[in-house]
């Protein structure tokens, strides 16, 4: 089921969404819906991380930095192994 909602967007945001939707071959509504869905999933996911941390202990600043660094390496095309990363 689809629900119609009237939303207001800043002019530049609306233009950027139009361009992105055109590029992705989907409608303006479908693009916005996808973006909202992704954002909701991120929000839910961070709650999942917090739930795990409440049991296992919060990730330390060092662990968070290590996770960020590992993600950056993977996205830039560098493979890694658990043991090597843990030693850093």
């Amino acid at each position: 089921m689809v629900i119609k909602r009237s939303v207001s967007l800043a002019d530049e945001v609306a233009r950027a969404v139009e361009a992105a939707a055109r590029e992705d071959g989907v409608s303006f509504s479908a693009w916005l819906s996808g973006a909202a869905e992704r954002q909701l999933r991120v929000r839910q996911g961070l709650r999942g991380v917090a739930a795990w941390e409440s049991e296992a202990g919060a990730l330390t600043a060092e662990e968070i930095a290590a996770g960020e660094a590992l993600l950056a390496r993977l996205l830039s095309g560098v493979s890694g192994m658990a043991s090597r990363v843990r030693r850093r």
């Binding site: 954002q39 290590a66 960020e68």
Partner: peptide
């Protein structure tokens, strides 16, 4: 499996992905 067993690096990279808008 690693996440289920509490591998903190897996959780850290998962958190990093989400924080960067990657699902």
């Amino acid at each position: 499996r690693a996440a289920a067993r509490g591998d903190r690096m897996v959780w850290a990279v998962h958190r990093a992905a989400l924080a960067n808008g990657i699902v």
